[in-house]
Amino acid sequence: MSDEEPSVARRGPTWLVLVVVAAALVVCCCSTVIGLVVAGSAGLLGR
């Protein structure tokens, strides 16, 4: 069983990194959408 423990230990941080990257992308996309909505409502987009 000691052979399986390192592989499990490696997969944990990999999933953690993927979750953090996905969360960062979601936050960036939401921030961009909110920024565009605010700019549009303020008339900064030239429409």
Rank of each mutant, 00 (worst) to 15 (best):
47 R>H: 05
38 V>Y: 02
18 L>W: 12
25 L>Y: 04
5 E>D: 11
16 L>D: 02
2 S>R: 12
6 P>Q: 09
16 L>M: 13
34 I>S: 06
1 M>E: 09
14 T>E: 14
7 S>W: 06
46 G>I: 00
13 P>W: 13
24 A>Q: 05
23 A>V: 15
19 V>K: 03
25 L>D: 06
34 I>R: 10
18 L>T: 11
31 S>I: 00
30 C>I: 11
30 C>H: 06
13 P>I: 05
10 R>I: 05
22 A>W: 13
35 G>S: 12
15 W>K: 12
2 S>T: 11
6 P>I: 13
37 V>R: 08
44 L>Y: 03
47 R>L: 10
15 W>M: 13
8 V>N: 03
11 R>M: 15
12 G>F: 12
23 A>I: 10
46 G>S: 06
41 S>A: 10
26 V>S: 06
10 R>P: 00
39 A>Q: 08
43 G>Y: 02
17 V>R: 15
36 L>W: 06
43 G>S: 01
15 W>D: 05
8 V>R: 15
15 W>C: 08
4 E>I: 05
41 S>W: 03
19 V>C: 03
24 A>D: 08
41 S>R: 13
9 A>E: 15
12 G>T: 09
43 G>V: 00
23 A>R: 01
28 C>Y: 07
12 G>R: 14
45 L>P: 00
19 V>D: 00
39 A>G: 01
32 T>G: 10
16 L>N: 05
44 L>H: 02
9 A>L: 15
33 V>H: 07
40 G>A: 02
23 A>W: 12
31 S>K: 02
43 G>K: 01
4 E>M: 09
9 A>S: 12
42 A>H: 07
18 L>R: 15
42 A>R: 14
33 V>S: 07
40 G>S: 02
23 A>C: 13
14 T>K: 11
44 L>S: 02
5 E>R: 13
13 P>Q: 10
5 E>V: 11
35 G>K: 01
43 G>F: 02
7 S>V: 14
31 S>M: 03
43 G>W: 01
23 A>F: 09
3 D>S: 14
45 L>F: 06
28 C>K: 02
32 T>E: 10
26 V>A: 15
3 D>F: 09
2 S>V: 07
1 M>Y: 02
8 V>Q: 10
46 G>K: 01
41 S>E: 07
25 L>E: 07
27 V>Q: 12
24 A>N: 05
10 R>N: 10
6 P>A: 09
16 L>Q: 09
35 G>N: 09
25 L>I: 14
6 P>E: 05
19 V>A: 15
36 L>G: 06
46 G>Q: 01
2 S>H: 07
